[in-house]
Design a protein around this nucleic acid. Structure first.
Lengths: 207, 207
DNA sequence: ACAGCATTGTTGGCGGCGTCTACATTCGGG
DNA sequence: CCCGAATGTAGACGCCGCCAACAATGCTGT
């Protein structure tokens, strides 16, 4: 994501057209979000950072909420990648795979706390909301795959997968969400996840 | 300009001092939050609603965040009451009691969605944050009591209570949080909670 | 090649917001 | 009963999101 476009010639730093302002806005917005928190995110300051007039962002996002929605979407995309990657160098047992995905989710959550807040914020445009629900369910499906495999191996109780999956989804999201909002003592964060994983495994073990 | 004082119509209840502006601010703020969402919450509009000058709120809350923090605190108080009440007319088995508290929590969450968002928002003043963490742990303790009782009855696995409780806390909070952010289809909301409760029970059943 | 149009960026302005300071009124304890 | 503390008011400042009018650029069909 280097700005190969914006810095074509070393001399020429300023052009009328930015090249890819939309992407630049999203990138910079996420940095600001991470570094200074959601309250410090303003379209005008973003524009200043990118050396662009204060109204330029409106060409790419119809309002501030639209930018936040887009940011949340990229968050879900990166989350899905992260979770997929977590399944690559890991054993075959359901316990191992669930553990891996759980750790990956919590790691992502703590490493992207403010972004996660945004992803699940109850504030989205109704239209963008559809896309976001779809995105969140995309990672739900990664859980579902895992469960299907576990059921096939006889390591997970039978039943419709969304009924087995929802409690896992909720538990994982809940723990991550608590961790993110600093509601857990540091010690609970470290060793707590192990207990949570064990709890999930018991919860969906075959009867 | 002082005729409001000297020539006051009998019904005119307008006084220089409001009486209990602080409480009125909190009450009205929660209404606005519920009815028009967090984005529509502004100190100035709040002041207008209550017929006071735009700077009056600053006498009671040093800034907007302070008001939000206070609002979150009252939320935790009401939540604790609600959960306590849920244990009153319910059977003695751990399953019944956990079910009752879970339903009460989810009911509170859906009935106070925006407030719950605020309560767990990662945005608080460091100083107020202490109070909030304490408040959130107060309801954690209600869970802990329940677990202790369940262990005593032999219906819950042994072990340090925070280690048994954390997964329950996380699951419950996660489900409520998902419900609140509209990430669950309506059907999952209704029947999903039963599955989640069953999952929790299996997760902390004696070995 | 180039005219015409859509895209993208700029400038200026509007009203609302949060916060600060200076001032006014009221309350309550010596 | 008076004086300081609490509480409310009035005005100003700078920032914000958003809008409308205008300017530069890119692209496409002929």
């Amino acid at each position: 994501m280097t700005d190969t476009l914006t810095v074509m010639t070393p001399m020429q730093t300023r052009r009328y057209h930015h090249g890819d302002l939309r992407a630049a806005l999203l990138t910079r917005a996420e940095e600001t979000l991470r570094e200074k928190g959601p309250a410090a995110l303003s379209l005008r300051e973003l524009a200043r950072d990118l050396d662009v007039s204060h109204a330029a962002p409106s060409r790419h996002f119809k309002d501030k909420q639209a930018l936040l929605d887009a940011l949340a979407l990229t968050g879900f995309d990166r989350l899905a990648e992260t979770l997929a990657a977590s399944q690559e160098d890991v054993g075959e047992t359901f316990a191992e795979r669930l553990g891996a995905i759980a750790r990956a989710y919590v790691d992502f959550a703590t490493a992207n706390a403010e972004l996660l807040d945004l992803m699940y914020a109850k504030k989205h445009d109704p239209t963008a909301s559809e896309a976001l629900v779809a995105a969140s369910q995309r990672w739900g499906e990664q859980l579902v795959e895992l469960i299907a495999e576990g059921q096939h191996r006889g390591e997970v109780r039978q039943g419709p997968m969304e009924r087995v999956g929802l409690p896992l989804f909720a538990t994982l999201h809940g723990f991550a969400s608590l961790a993110v909002s600093d509601m857990l003592p540091a010690e609970a964060l470290e060793h707590g996840l192990d207990d949570v994983i064990a709890h999930m495994l018991r919860g969906c073990a075959p009867e």
